[in-house]
Each structure stands twice: as C-alpha cells, then as structure tokens.
Nucleic acid binder design. Structure first.
Lengths: 142, 142
DNA sequence: GTTCATGCAAAAGGTTTGCAGTCAT
DNA sequence: ATGACTGCAAACCTTTTGCATGAAC
C-alpha cells in the first residue's frame, strides 16, 4: 500500500494537475483526523493548526481528494456535506445514535451480497451504496 | 386507514396546533404528487397551481408534516433537502441511477431482519434506516 | 513561460427568522 | 380574546465563482 501523498501525486499527474503545498498539507491533516468531517469543521482544524489554506481552497481541494479516492462523501447530511477517509480502509456501513450522534462502523458481507443481487434483478450495475441504521445506542436507550 | 387530512387534524389538535387552509392545501398538493420533492420544487408546484402559500410557510409546514408522519426526509441530498410521502405507504429502500437519476423503490425483508440483528449486536434500539444502492440502470449502462 | 492553483471578496443557492398583521379556536 | 400562523424581507450558512496574483511543471 503506497503512501497517500504518492497516491495523490500520481493521481494528479495522470490528470495534469499539480501537487501543491496546500494539497499536501490538507491531505496530511485529514489523514490525521479521526472520523467524519464537514468542510467547515476542516477549516476550523486548519485555522487551529495555523495552516495557510483558505476556505475557498478547501472547498476546491475536497472534490480532488474524492476523485483520488482518498476520501468520500459520507452520511446523511443535515445542512453540511460530510466526508470520511477511505484511503487504506475497508468498506463499512454506519450505525448512528439519534441521541448522542455516536457513529459505529460495521461490515456485513451477506447484506453486501444481497445488495448486488437486488441491483442485478433490476438490471443495475452497482457502483456504491449507503446503509445507515439509526437508533438509540446502549448508553442512550432509557 | 383514515383520510390524511383527518390524520393531520388530529395530530395538530394533539399538539395544540391549527389546521389552516395553507396546511390543508399543501398536504393535498403533496399527496397528489408522485415521488420525491425538495422544498423549492414544491414551491414551483404551488406557484403553478396558483396556491396562495409563501416560501416561508412551505419551509415551516414541512417539519409539521414530518412529525405527523405524512412525509419523511429521504435520500442523500445534494444541496437540497428531499422529502417523500410515507402516509399509507409501506417502507422501502431505493435504487438510484447515477446517470439518469431514476429512482426505483424496492423491499427486502431478509435485509431488514439482518439490520435489526446488527443493531441488537451493538446494543442499539433501531428506529429507522436508510439504504440506497447507486449504479447504472439498464438504460444507462453502456 | 504556460497553465493551473490560490486568496479574497462577492455572489449564489437553500433555509431560517423577526416582525407586523391575520386567522383558527 | 388569545395564541398560533402567515407573508415579507432581511439574515444566515454553506458553497461557488470571478478576478488578480502566485506557484508548479
């Protein structure tokens, strides 16, 4: 498994784009963060770390990182787009507590297989999917 | 199965809220529409039918209809919140064509059962879920 | 040197809100 | 009569964009 910066670099080269300081710094910051983030949350981290990256640049870099398959859009959004890191991670779905907003990641191969069957049945070529289970977690159920 | 207006009326009464002309008209319009809609699309329909309901009122009524369980939020949003009618309809999930945006509704009991098992395994009380399968439909696969 | 990327500030959606007037109960 | 509801316009938040400057190749 390559280094994420090399990954990004070769992706950019393939597309005739450039590996700028801003892109390098932002990828490193994102990979150092746990969990999911919105552009505005990311901006806060950038400000906290005093990285010289503007809001506009963040909004412009995020789609590049998606197409480089380092991050992906994630979760049902309320107002803000959310992203999560996919680089070097297995696919998973989410359990979300509707009370404390805790997010648990899980995998379930049988469901994945069934999803492909459903897609086939309707003549679809499956590209990706979202499955999110919402409820009260064990700390919030009373 | 009651009439949706009665349903709404008794829900509103229970909450000490009022059954206004705007709410009646909007429910009827929504129920006459097929599929999913955003607030702005709904506003267009309202204008087309020359109903005297303002944008602000639409945005204020939609959450009321959600809590009356006549509609629910639906689908991954790109920019706009989307809703769909749930009143008098069975639960279903979605297959979405990433090329033509066609939406197919389907049901799959085995997956529903497995979702409940997953929730149990992690100590969650499941409230609801979203499952969306994205891919190329048979008309768009080449 | 060429072309792409960045920062800034303005603009562009979508959604919310304060206020004064209106209507359901 | 009371308190909820509506319309309007302004405000708000997130995201996008035009333009001049700066940097990667």
């Amino acid at each position: 498994m390559k280094d994420p910066l090399e990954e990004l670099g070769s992706h950019l080269k393939r597309k005739g784009l450039r590996l700028t300081e801003e892109r390098k710094k932002l990828v490193q910051l994102i990979l150092s963060m746990k969990g999911h983030f919105s552009p505005e949350e990311l901006l806060k981290h950038v400000k906290t770390k005093r990285l010289p990256i503007s809001r506009a640049t963040i909004y412009r870099i995020l789609p590049v990182l998606v197409s480089a398959e380092i991050i992906q859009q994630s979760l049902l959004t309320e107002g803000q787009t959310r992203f999560e890191v996919t680089w070097n991670k297995d696919h998973h779905d989410h359990l979300i507590c509707t009370y404390c907003n805790k997010v648990i990641e899980f995998q379930h191969n049988t469901i994945e297989i069934m999803q492909r069957e459903i897609a086939n049945r309707y003549g679809f070529i499956l590209e990706h999917h979202v499955m999110e289970l919402m409820g009260r977690c064990k700390d919030c159920r009373n």
